[in-house]
Nucleic acid binder design. Structure first.
Lengths: 226, 226
DNA sequence: AAGTGAATTTAACGATCGTAAAAAAATCTT
DNA sequence: AAGATTTTTTTACGATCGTTAAATTCACTT
């Protein structure tokens, strides 16, 4: 028995692009345009401050069309969060490539360099996480908040798989949580922390400051766990 | 020459309380009630998610009365921020009392204990700071944001005055900034970070986790600077 | 070319927001 | 007690929010 008041269903996750014979180029689907625009807006404003109308403007479409593909703002945000965290996760795995042979000092240094390089080229994931991690009281939490918590657990698992460590689970959890907390704040909210130091977030001096901070804090810990 | 369209001016900062002969007790002024209610709401919701109507409900007054004492939401928030940061600042100074004689290990341990004790008894200041530190893109920033930045500078100055250190300005700035970043996140946004660890924010196990994290991270640094 | 379903635009609803203005009540001054 | 001033309540404005519904346009099949 069908629901009587159902709409025509939009494509949940069809082809992301299709060939446009007129322009002779790949035309991104509306759904993809929406997710991309949403990820821009959600990387500049926390969930409650971002609006569907902002996203529509960013995507250059009329805002109710967003509701056609994503019936609720919460659903759209969750999708953005999912894609964002997945993107970060895949990158994080790669930053560990070939590190084991370098030893802790050089290995950690290269890892941070790769991390910072990613944050500069793809600022959105860290910003979205930083903007929405701390938002409101527990009772009315951001949609998809469990994804943000999962992010920390995933990061720890990635570390454990990539680096052979001796420490206890607690120790490893503490180190990775502290590392990710600092990294999210300093790279995802660089505007604020660089401002405290009187610098610009893309200023190499600030990035050097971030690397030194993370190194001072984490490297001794890491050596102890190896 | 007077402005022709001015309102009657509310008391900017008169007596905070006055004796009520009917009840025979100290009656807190409406202005104080508003600031207290606002600090509760602003410690549960970031600036843009908090509303004047929430604050009116919390203070048990009609919400337009808030506009009588604070013509704009931004002004009220700045006042809350000013009071909040002042309260934290005064407390911070006291946490250093008698620490110099204890040496770095015991001194740092006691400092953290005092800090955590304060955060448990007065959770609002850290929460307000944590909720509003990272909020939106630089262009439309939280009102009174410079107060939040000043908070970090004040904390560093307090440390320098209280503890005789040898390190360079840069080193001290790095250590105190890192310390305050972690403290604000872990104590001001305990709901979120405890959640990642599968704990409750008031759980002693979580507080022990916070103390250990801060100790592992900051103590070696501190020893080096003394 | 006609018909059909999907995609998009237009219009609007109800809710909430900060704030203003006027009315009413309370308090103070003479 | 009467008048003046301050404080509080009531009412409402204009803006923005997420979302819905209907109208319109587009793409495709027959």
């Amino acid at each position: 028995m069908k629901k009587s008041n159902q709409k025509s269903q939009p494509p949940a996750s069809k082809n992301e692009n299709h060939y446009d014979e007129n322009s002779g180029s790949l035309k991104t689907s509306t759904r993809v345009k929406i997710v991309e625009a949403a990820s821009i807006v959600f990387s500049n404003f926390p969930y409650y401050a971002a609006s569907i109308r902002m996203i529509g403007k960013e995507a250059q479409i009329d805002h109710p069309l967003i509701n056609y593909y994503f019936p609720t703002k919460a659903g759209l945000f969750q999708e953005v969060l999912r894609v964002t965290i997945e993107e970060y996760y895949q990158a994080n795995v790669q930053w560990f490539d070939g590190l084991a042979a370098l030893g802790p000092e050089k290995g950690f240094s290269l890892y941070i360099d790769r991390f910072i390089d990613f944050a500069l080229k793809h600022p959105k994931p860290m910003r979205i996480i930083a903007l929405n991690l701390v938002q409101a009281k527990q009772s009315d939490i951001i949609p998809g908040y469990q994804l943000l918590q999962q992010f920390f657990l995933d990061a720890m698992q990635t570390f454990i798989k990539a680096v052979p460590v001796k420490g206890t689970h607690i120790d490893i959890q503490m180190m990775t949580t502290n590392f990710n907390t600092m990294a999210i704040n300093y790279l995802g909210a660089g505007d604020y922390y660089a401002g405290i130091l009187g610098l610009e977030p893309q200023n190499p001096e600030y990035l050097k400051w971030v690397k030194e901070s993370l190194t001072y804090i984490i490297l001794p810990w890491l050596k102890q766990l190896l």
